[in-house]
């Protein structure tokens, strides 16, 4: 290959082709698409884009153990910055005592209960409704990924059951409904 390879692009420039590629090759430009030189250059540009990221990624993968120090430091800094969310009251007979569980704690409880199940990984946990008024019905919405090859209805039922049990044990929330949306599928990595 020589320097002249991308000089003759049937009247187009590399920059034009790059812009065309970024627009997803739409609207279709017959002048470019019908030129062998342009199509070759487009192919090269697309590969170069992928290689740029791949080259960084491979460099990053070279020493996978290197990063531990800064991650420990990072976690130490941000651990105190978990937004507590709303306060969810817990009753107490003493009028001078006020007890509560934070929304963040309850979300964490829901995640932990679900994480104990095989074949499912929970994503978002949302608690909808007036959690600060005792007795007010609330709805819990959960998204989750299911492991490939498992029937969904029993998984969803099991998920609902463990979440309902955990909430009943650790909060006084009146759960109207638990909505579970399976929006992803994953495969367990070999190890």
């Amino acid at each position: 290959m020589t320097n002249s390879d991308f000089d003759d692009l049937d009247g187009h420039t590399l920059e034009e082709l790059s812009d065309y590629l970024e627009s997803g090759r739409t609207p279709r430009d017959p002048g470019i698409e019908n030129s062998a030189a342009c199509r070759l250059a487009l192919e090269g540009l697309a590969r170069l884009r992928a290689l740029s990221l791949d080259a960084l990624q491979r460099e990053a993968d070279r020493d996978p153990t290197r990063d531990d120090g800064w991650i420990a430091g990072l976690l130490d800094i941000i651990k105190d910055e978990i937004r507590p969310g709303r306060d969810i009251p817990i009753s107490d007979p003493d009028a001078m005592t006020s007890l509560s569980v934070t929304e963040a704690a309850v979300r964490g409880l829901v995640r932990a209960a679900a994480d104990a199940l095989p074949s499912v990984i929970i994503g978002r946990t949302e608690i909808e409704g007036d959690v600060s008024t005792p007795g007010a019905p609330v709805r819990v919405r959960i998204t989750a990924a299911a492991e490939y090859g498992h029937a969904l209805p029993p998984l969803v039922e099991e998920l609902r059951r463990v979440v309902a049990e955990a909430l009943a044990e650790h909060t006084e929330l009146v759960i109207d409904q638990i909505d579970v949306t399976i929006d992803d599928v994953y495969r367990r990595a070999e190890r």
């Binding site: 979300r107 990984i121 998204t143 994953y186």
Partner: peptide, 16 residues
């Protein structure tokens, strides 16, 4: 094994 989507969703919810 979780996807980026799942991990980011949990992180948004405060999962350290």
């Amino acid at each position: 094994d979780a996807s980026d989507t799942i991990l980011a969703s949990r992180a948004i919810d405060g999962d350290l």
